[in-house]
Design a binder for these strands. Sequence first.
DNA 1: TATATTTGTCCGAATTTTCGGAAAACATCG
DNA 2: CGATGTTTTCCGAAAATTCGGACAAATATA
Lengths: 201, 201
Amino acid sequence: MTNKVLIIEDDPALRNSIVQTLELEELEPIPTNGFVHARRTIRSNFRGVILTDIKMPDHSGFDVLRFVQSRDPDLPVIMVTGHSDVPTAMRAIKDGAYDYLEKPCDPDTLVDTLRRALDHRRLVLENREIRDELNQVAAPQDGTLAERMETHERDILEEALIAEDGKVSAAAIRLGIPRNTLYDRMAKYNLVAKAYRRTSD
Amino acid sequence: MTNKVLIIEDDPALRNSIVQTLELEELEPIPTNGFVHARRTIRSNFRGVILTDIKMPDHSGFDVLRFVQSRDPDLPVIMVTGHSDVPTAMRAIKDGAYDYLEKPCDPDTLVDTLRRALDHRRLVLENREIRDELNQVAAPQDGTLAERMETHERDILEEALIAEDGKVSAAAIRLGIPRNTLYDRMAKYNLVAKAYRRTSD
DNA sequence: TATATTTGTCCGAATTTTCGGAAAACATCG
DNA sequence: CGATGTTTTCCGAAAATTCGGACAAATATA
C-alpha cells in the first residue's frame, strides 16, 4: 500500500500528536526529528508522501523540498507553515510543494490533505509501473529472424495448448493445422501436452 | 490538455469572477448556472474537473456529486461551501468530493486546489489510456497458426527494413539470413524495399 | 469387460522453403 | 562512356516442413 507519511518535525509533542492522528486513520507515519534522519527514506520509489515543518532549528523545510525534488519531482511534499503565513505558503507551492498546512493544523484537514497527496503518489507510481510494462512488451527486439519466429511460434503453441487444456487435437484444430504437424512443432520446442493440463496434473 | 474546469454556480457575479481568475491562470473555465446545463458535459472522459457550489436554488451540490460519481468515480468534484461551514465540508469529503473551498474563496487557494485536482484527473486518464494500450498488445489473439506467424514475420521484416533504411542486404544481415531468402520472404508479403527508405523517397 | 475415442509416435511422399550462383537492371562516379 | 558497386530477379538443387495414413498405448464410455 502507498500510505506512508514521512514526518519531519522537530517538536516532539506535535510530532507525536501527528503520529497518533495518522495511526487512527490507518496511515503509516514514519516520524523523524529532522532532515538528517529523513534523508535515507527519501527515494524515487518511496511509497508515500512527505510532511515537513518549515521552520526548524538547523535547517528549513525548503531544504527538504529541494532535496526531495532532486530525488523524485513527483514525490509530494506537504509543508507546515506558521499560522496565517500566507507569503511563505505561496512560496512553498510555487517551489513545487504539493500543498501546505497552517499550524496548528486541524486533524481532519491534515488527513484529507495527506490522502490527496497519497492518492497522487499512488497514481504516479502506478503510472510508472504500467509504462515500464508497456515498454517491455513494445520494445524493439533483436536477434535472428529464425530465433524470433521460433519464440513467437512457441508462444502461440503454448497459448493454444493452455486454452485447450493440453489437448493436442483440439489445439491443432484451433490453430488450423493437422494434428501431426502440431506434434512436429511441439517436438521442435520440447513441449509436452501433459504440462498444460489444468485438470489432474 | 487536461485543464477544463466545469463551473456550476448560480450567482452570476461570483461565476464571472471565477472565470476571470481561471483565465488568467491559463485554465479553461466552462461556466454554467446549474446542474441542467452542466449535465451534458459530465462524462467519464471529461478532461477536466468540476467546481460546484453547494447551496443553489433548485438543487444541491450533492446532487451534482452523486451524478458525477455515477458517470465517473474518478472525476474530481470540488465543492464550495459557505463560510466556515465545517460539517458540510466534512460531509462533502466523506461523500467523495475531491476537495472543498470556503466562500468567499481566495483566488490563490482556488487555483492551487484546482491544479491539484486537474493533476489528479490527468493522471487518472493517463493511467486508463496506458492500461488500454497494454491490454491491446497483451490480448490473446486468435486465427490460424500460419496467419499469426505470417503477420509476425511481416512485422519483423518491416522493422528490419525500417531500421536499415530500406537496404535489403543490410536488413538480411541484421536478420541473419541470406539476401535471397529475404527477397523470397518479401515477395510473399509484397514488400518493396523502396517504401522503407527515409532518404530521398 | 467390451468398445470407442483419444493420444503419442513413426514413416514417407508431396510440397514448400532455403540459399548459392548467375545475370539483368540500376545507380554512382571519375 | 566505361568501370564499379548495389539492387533485384530468376533458376534449380538441397534441405526442411507438411501432413495423411497406420498403429500401439492410454483413456474414456457403455
